[in-house]
């Protein structure tokens, strides 16, 4: 009898587990269903509205038309070459501005004297909006690559500058006492204490710099260029090829998000020691 009871309870446990698994599976599916329901229905309604000519095709082409334009651009190789140009500009400007911003932020963070000479000027320049300097850059450097790269650099410079500076200055003073008691050399103090402590801020600055660089890239390419995704958009606009405008916008959006995710991935790996890290 006890044996029977054992078998019985065993079965109920298995059943419970199965039910739980099913439930979990369901909840994962429903998570996706819930998240995708809205965009999917919008796209469907959009497509249908276009099909029945409720909206003008020049103002809002159907999703399937955008997809077709996307495919054509890939097949002709146009998209790839424009995209490569844009990417190179973004990387070039980001590397230049970001590296300078990081270097300046570290220099100012480490030395009070450098801070006094450099920071007031930089803070003043920081308040100048990137878009406002476009006309000046065009006057100075023309429509060529130089003005574009410099514009992107300016946008990438400040987030890294400000956050690297902040990161270095917010190192816990209690840990400096530890470094003193353990007789850290100046070099060890920098590599084992200050830089790791500043890393969360530096990585945040990196993300913001990337975002800024990407925005500046769009602005730089829209202001006038003969290549790049921004040019693709402007060119398509002149000929009312709205589908291609959409393709360009989507590319900017997807790559903006991708670059951000890339840095966040490194953040997660490098900052796994952090107390409050969620994810």
């Amino acid at each position: 009898m006890s044996n029977q009871a054992g078998v019985l309870s065993r079965r109920t446990i298995d059943e419970k587990e199965l039910a739980l698994k099913r439930q979990r599976k369901q909840s994962i599916t429903s998570y996706w269903v819930r998240g995708l329901a809205l965009p999917a229905s919008i796209i469907l309604i959009w497509e249908l509205a276009g099909l029945f000519e409720l909206i003008s095709a020049t103002l809002l082409p159907r999703p399937s038309e955008i997809l077709a334009a996307f495919r054509d651009l890939i097949v002709s190789g146009e998209l790839f070459s424009h995209f490569t140009i844009s990417l190179l500009r973004a990387i070039g400007g980001f590397l230049l501005g970001g590296a300078l911003g990081l270097a300046a932020g570290l220099a100012v963070g480490f030395s009070k004297r450098t801070e006094q000479t450099l920071d007031p000027t930089l803070q003043m320049l920081r308040t100048v909006p990137t878009l406002a300097v476009i006309p000046l850059f065009i006057l100075w450097f023309g429509f060529g690559e130089v003005s574009k790269i410099l514009l992107i650099s300016k946008a990438a410079f400040f987030p890294l500058y400000v956050n690297a500076f902040l990161g270095i200055r917010s190192v816990d003073s209690k840990l400096f006492d530890v470094a003193k008691v353990l007789q850290f050399s100046k070099w060890k103090q920098i590599t084992t204490l200050i830089l790791p402590a500043a890393l969360p801020n530096i990585l945040l600055g990196l993300r913001l710099s990337l975002g800024g660089a990407w925005l500046a890239l769009v602005a730089a390419e829209l202001m006038g260029s003969s290549e790049g995704v921004g040019y693709l958009i402007m060119d398509a606009r002149q000929f009312s090829q709205t589908s291609i405008v959409f393709v360009g916008i989507i590319i900017f959006a997807v790559f903006g998000k991708a670059s951000d995710s890339f840095v966040r991935y490194f953040e997660r790996r490098l900052l796994k020691w952090r107390e409050n890290y969620i994810g």
Binding site: D177, V178, A179, V181, F184, K188, T192, P196, L199, W273
Partner: peptide
């Protein structure tokens, strides 16, 4: 050697590396 009231470990170093530190 000085032991403070709080451990004051380096949060980014694991136990071994906190001990060897510099």
């Amino acid at each position: 050697g000085f032991i403070f009231q709080e451990p004051r470990l380096f949060p980014w170093l694991n136990v071994e590396k906190n001990i060897s530190a510099n």
